[in-house]
Structures are given as C-alpha cells and as structure tokens.
Write a protein that binds this DNA or RNA. Structure first.
Lengths: 207, 207
DNA sequence: GTCTATATCGGGATAGAC
DNA sequence: GTCTATCCCGATATAGAC
C-alpha cells in the first residue's frame, strides 16, 4: 500500500470502532461492517487481512488508551485524594468515547485469558505501579482517611463502581426506562457519587 | 419421549450448565458440550432441538432463580438493613452456583434487548416492587441512615459492588495473581465489605 | 485499490438406519 | 433413544479481472 492509512482504511477502522465499541455489536460480521462503511467487504480483508485482526486493531487501540491513562494516573506523584479523583475522571472520559469498551474487556479476557500479559501489563512498571498503589491505599487507611479493609477490596470497589454502570448499561436503561440522554446524565452524576463513597466523604441528612 | 427428563436429557442439561455457567465458555459449540457430556452430538438436537434452545433452557433457569430470589427479598416486609443484608446474601448464594451468570445476563441483554420484558419482568408485580424499593431507599436517606443521593445511584452502587467481582473475575484473578481458592475467599469477604459500604457503617482507624 | 466470482470451513440441523 | 451420513448455511477468506 502506497499511502499508509489510506482514506478507505481509515473509514473501515472508524466504522469498526463505531460498530464494536460505540454500538456494542460484538458479533457484527465483516458484511455488517462493510455495509455500515459503504464499502465492498473484500476491502476489509485487503486492509486488515481478517476479521480478527480488524477487531483486534480497534480493541487494542481503545484498550491501550484506557490502560495508559490509568497507568499514568496511578503512577503519578499526586496525593491520594486527587489521585482517585483523576482516576475517576480519566476512566469516565475514555468510556464516554467507547461506551462498550469495558464489556469487551471482560469478554476478551474471559475468552482468551492467555492474552492477559500482552494486553494488560505491557506498560513498563505496570505490576510495580499496581503494588505501589495498593500500598498507598493501605497507608490511607492507616491515616484514617478511608475505611479499613483489604486494599484489594478497595480496589475492586473502585472499579466496580466505575465500570459496572457501563457494562450493565443496556440492562439498567431498560429496567428504569431511561433514554440515552437520561442515562448519560446518570453516568455524569456518578463522578461525585463514586468519589464521595470512595473517599468516605458522604453526608447523611443529619450531618 | 416416554419419560420426561430422561437420564440423557438431564446429563446434557447439566453439562451445558457446567460449560456455560460454571466455566463461562459462552461460545461453546454443540460438539464441545456433547464431548463434555460424552454423548453423540445428535442427541442435543433430539432433546433440545437447537443449540439456542439448550442455551436458553440453562440460562433462563438460572436467571429465574436469581430473579425470583431478588424479587422475594425486595418485596418482603423486612426492615431496610436486614433487607439489604438478605439481598447481598441471596445474590452471593446464587452466584456461587453460577459464577458466570452475571456475565451472561449483561451479554444477553446486550444482544437481545427485545427480550428484556420476557426475561426480567415476568414476575407479578416486578415493576411495582422495584419502585417501592427505590422509595424505601429514599426514605432511608431521609432518616439519615444512609448517604443522600439519587435512589437509582444507590441501586447501581448496590449491584455494581455485588456483580462486578463476578463479571470481572478472570481479569482480577490474573491481575492479582490469585488462585481460585484465594478469589473465592475474597468473594466471601465482600459480603461484609459491601454491607458496610452500603449501610454506611464503616469504621475508619480513628473511630 | 476495488470489484465479482468462487473456494473453504465450521457448525447447526435433519433423514433414516438400527 | 442412539447412531451415521448428509445436508445446509452463513461467514471468512482468496483469486483474479478490471
């Protein structure tokens, strides 16, 4: 290919992004994507060789963005509270762009656990940063800023509160009969909800 | 078929349960299941007509159990705190039996949102109970027992904290290098973690 | 680079013998 | 009820013309 990232190649990739990560149609066929992009299906193969590779390109790109942003925040020199705030913010920003990314992550790691290393710990110092972060959580509990529990439980709470509303979005939207706009508002509001809960700063009515 | 639920039929169903809900192999083929059960693949069709119907049988059965248990607890006359406790307990018990049920739920509703009504609100008074529960949450906030936020946010927190560790289990297990046993212990511990967080009863070190 | 035509393959499903 | 053989189809993938 003469020009790297030709116009058509770009178009196909962006369409795949749209279909997979914004619409959540994880089983979309090459034909679906070709139709959505308005190109001949053969071109997907011409540029990306296989459906798998196209999927992977799109998925890994989005994943890398999320991973590296979290990596940066966790490894930063911020104090605990602003660090958690930055983490929530970063997560939210990426997920707004790729609403189904979290669903895909859980799915992929489910079906190809052998790719975990490649997908999640490739950033330099990834494991160490994680350990340090757990230490920071522990230290904060010592200081009495946040409730005491096993640091890993705090970590799980953090990502549960952040990720679940995205993973279960279709379910929750149906359950409470919420429009896209209404749900987006809920997601935005969660920023303060999650922070208050995680930083133990919630006010009850009597306080 | 002369005998309802013949031995072979039972065997196939239980194997499907094992493969789908306990091992999380949601893309398992009819051949995979036949092999696991040690029967001829044709028998799956003989008893369940299609892969879809076999899948559905297993999935709906587990889902019905979870749904009806939650339904019962939410609709019970328990006071708020014991009600939340019962909810956490019920959820945990079902998920121990079907570790991947939550993953399947989010996935299914994702791919067939039109089946939401059929799958989730078929129990009598389902919608009303949900509304009543939200009211109870609201009232509890008025009483100052739990932090103030939109009731739906509290509801999302509840299920996020309960469901996420199951949905993201493969990821978390890899991330922290935990054995099955170690992870199960984490899950058991979550009962108190989640309750403390939800009921706002956590103690920090200084308290 | 883009198209049409065609090959290939896996998996679901059924007919019919036993 | 269980098996073998076969059919069918959708989806991926490639060859080769333009």
């Amino acid at each position: 290919m003469a020009v790297k990232d030709s116009k058509t190649e770009q178009l196909i990739k962006e369409t795949a992004q749209q279909v997979f990560l914004k619409e959540g149609r994880m089983l979309a066929t090459t034909q679906d994507i070709a139709d959505a992009a308005g190109v001949n299906r053969t071109l997907l193969h011409y540029y990306f060789r296989s459906r798998d590779q196209l999927f992977d390109t799109v998925f890994v790109e989005a994943l890398t963005e999320l991973r590296s942003r979290i990596h940066d925040v966790i490894g930063s020199q911020l104090a605990f509270v602003p660090k958690i705030e930055a983490l929530v913010q970063a997560f939210l920003e990426v997920l707004v762009q790729h609403p189904f990314l979290e669903t895909f992550i859980t799915l992929q790691i489910n079906q190809q656990p052998e790719r975990y290393e490649e997908l999640f710990v490739q950033l330099p110092g990834g494991k160490e940063r994680l350990k340090t972060f757990l230490k920071e959580i522990e230290r904060e509990m010592e200081l009495g800023t946040i409730p005491q529990m096993k640091p890993i439980q705090y970590f799980i709470n953090l990502f549960a509160l952040l990720a679940y509303p995205h993973i279960a979005r279709p379910l929750l939207q149906k359950m409470f009969d919420l429009s896209d706009t209404a749900y987006k508002k809920i997601l935005q509001e969660r920023k303060t909800v999650v922070l208050a809960l995680l930083l133990h700063q919630y006010k009850t009515k009597d306080q």
